[in-house]
C-alpha cells in the first residue's frame, strides 16, 4: 500500500530561488521519462510531496503489521502461522527500505517516526479496522494487498529513482501476499458452513474500506494533478479504484461470495462494473482519527517505542563505552 494522498494541507510554497528556467528544465527531464536521483536538483514541493508520500507509505507498512499480527498466535495451522509470520516480517522490511528511500530526500527516520508518534503523520485508513476472525487475514491479503498492488505497480515507474526501485521489490512481495490471502479465502469458501460464513463476514466488513484505500474521488483529490505532472502518480484515484473493482468482483464470484453492494452491476457496453456510493463521511472520520482502531494502533506503536526507551539508551551508552575504549 498505501498511498492515499492523505494530507490535504501544506501546499507548495515555491521558493524564490526556483527560477522558471530551472523548473522548466526539471519538467523536461520528467517528460523525457528520466529518473530523478537523490543528488539531482528538484523543486522543494516535489521533494516535500515525495517525503510525505513515502513516509506515509512506510508508516502504513509498520502500522499494517498490527491487524495481521493480531492473528499470529491463533493461526489455525503451523503452515499458516509460518506464512503469516513471513508476511508480517516482509511488511517490517518494506517499512525499513521505504524509510531509507525517504531518507535520500534529506529527512531522518527518527524525524519521520516522531511525526507518526506525535500524530502529525498519517498512515493508510485501512489499518484502523479490526481483524475479528481468521478470514480477515484472507481478506486483507486478497483485498487490501490487491488494492495496494493496483496502487503500487505504477509507482515502479515513479519519476523518483530510489522510490521506484524500492517499489519493484515491494510489489514482488505484495503479489505473493495477495495470492496467500486469496488462498486462505479459497480454502474457507470450500470448507464447512462455518468457514464460508467467516469468509462472507470478512468480505462484508473489508469491501468498502478497501475501495476507500484509493483515496478521495478525482474531483476532491487536491494533490493529484501536480503528482501526475511530476509522474509520481500515473493513474487517477478513480481509475485505479475502477480497475480494482473490475478485477475483484469476478474473483468474489469464483469464491461464491456476495459483494456487499446492492448497486453493483456490470455495464455490458463499457465492460466495467458500476458500483454504489462510497461513504466518504466514514473515510474522513477514520482519517481524522475516529476509526474503530485508530487509538489502539497508535497506543501500541507509542508503547513499543516508549517502553523500550531504556533499550535504545543502553545500546547508545554501550556503543559510547566501546568507542571510548577503542580511542584509549
Amino acid at each position: 500500500m498505501y498511498t492515499q494522498g492523505l494530507d490535504q494541507k501544506g501546499q507548495a510554497n515555491v521558493s524564490e530561488i526556483e527560477s522558471p528556467e530551472q523548473l522548466a528544465a526539471f519538467q523536461a527531464r520528467i517528460d523525457a521519462e528520466e529518473k530523478i536521483e537523490a543528488k539531482d536538483w528538484m523543486p522543494a514541493a516535489y521533494r516535500r510531496t515525495l517525503i510525505r508520500q513515502i513516509s506515509q507509505h512506510a508508516h502504513s507498512e509498520i502500522i499494517g503489521m498490527q491487524p495481521e499480527g493480531n492473528w499470529l498466535t491463533r493461526a489455525p495451522s503451523l503452515q499458516r502461522k509460518a506464512i503469516l509470520l513471513a508476511k508480517v516480517q516482509d511488511e517490517a522490511g518494506h517499512g525499513l527500505y521505504l524509510y531509507s528511500a525517504a531518507e535520500t530526500l534529506g529527512v531522518s527516520r527518527d524525524e519521520m517516526v516522531q511525526g507518526l508518534l506525535d500524530g502529525k503523520a498519517k498512515y493508510s485508513s485501512i489499518f484502523n479496522y479490526p481483524t475479528l476472525n481468521w478470514a480477515d487475514i484472507g481478506a486483507i491479503g486478497w483485498l487490501v494487498d490487491g488494492a495496494a498492488i493496483m496502487n503500487q505497480i505504477p509507482l515502479c515507474r515513479c519519476s523518483y529513482g530510489p522510490y521506484a526501485r524500492a517499489m519493484i521489490r515491494v510489489c514482488k512481495e505484495e503479489s505473493f501476499h495477495q495470492r496467500q490471502g486469496f488462498d486462505i479465502m479459497h480454502k474457507l469458501c470450500n470448507g464447512t458452513d462455518d468457514q464460508k460464513a467467516m469468509a462472507q463476514d470478512a468480505l462484508n466488513r473489508w469491501w468498502w474500506p478497501s475501495l476507500m484505500m484509493f483515496g478521495p474521488g478525482d474531483a476532491d483529490s487536491k494533490h493529484s494533478a501536480q503528482s501526475m505532472a511530476w509522474k509520481i502518480k500515473r493513474f487517477s484515484n478513480d481509475e485505479l479504484r475502477q480497475k480494482f473493482v473490475d478485477v475483484t468482483v469476478p474473483q468474489a464470484e469464483f469464491l461464491g461470495l456476495r459483494v456487499p453492494d446492492d448497486a453493483l452491476v456490470l455495464d455490458e457496453e463499457s465492460g466495467h462494473y458500476r458500483f454504489g456510493e462510497i461513504d466518504w463521511q466514514e473515510f474522513h472520520d477514520v482519517l481524522a482519527g475516529n476509526g474503530p482502531c485508530n487509538a489502539q494502533r497508535m497506543e501500541r506503536r507509542r508503547s513499543a517505542h516508549d517502553d523500550n526507551a531504556w533499550v535504545r539508551d543502553a545500546a547508545r551508552a554501550y556503543a559510547d563505552k566501546q568507542s571510548a575504549k577503542a580511542v584509549a
Binding site: I62, M65, Q66, G69, L72, T73, L78, Q79, K81, A82, L85, A86, V88, Q89, A92, G93, G95, L96, Y99, R300, R301, S303, A304, H305, N308, V311, R312
Partner: peptide
C-alpha cells in the same frame, strides 16, 4: 516470540524477532 511482534524497540529488532520466530516455527514443523 510471535507474541512480541509489533512490540520491539526498533524496526531492525522487529525483523530479527520475526525472523527468529519463523526459524523456530519451521524447526517445530
Amino acid at each position: 516470540m510471535v507474541e512480541l511482534v509489533t512490540r520491539e524497540p526498533e524496526l531492525e529488532e522487529e525483523l530479527a524477532n520475526a525472523n527468529f520466530a519463523l526459524d523456530y516455527i519451521g524447526q517445530a514443523r
